[in-house]
Amino acid sequence: MSTLHTVNKSPFATTTLASCLNHALEGDAILLIEDGVYGGVVGTELAKALAAAKGVSLYVLSGDLTARGIDTARLVKGMKPIDYAGFVALATEHDRAQAWL
């Protein structure tokens, strides 16, 4: 039993990503979408927390990333860019989806 968490807020605007990280369980996945993708960039305070999330897989929606001019090379280590088809696949692979709005 696992959850796909989606985060659509910049971590510099709200504490949503931090809250999601605080509640993600081992085996869960976190997908950053929309303005949430700013949270995936290496070198920030939250990136450290992201990197420390044990047993949680990290994804970012590639369309949102490139739209905002962020190169995948700047992502936190281990974070995978996926497209919408990948998003759908993640939703099917986990038992539920929780949107952190």
Binding site: N8, G63, A85, T92, L101
Partner: peptide, 26 residues
């Protein structure tokens, strides 16, 4: 879909998700 169009991206993301889900046979 719980946000309005244009102000938020939510309805766009939902639209692309639905298209991708249908394309995958769901």
């Amino acid at each position: 879909v719980s946000e309005g169009p244009y102000t938020h991206q939510a309805s766009d993301t939902a639209y692309h998700f639905v298209k991708a889900a249908l394309a995958a046979g769901h």
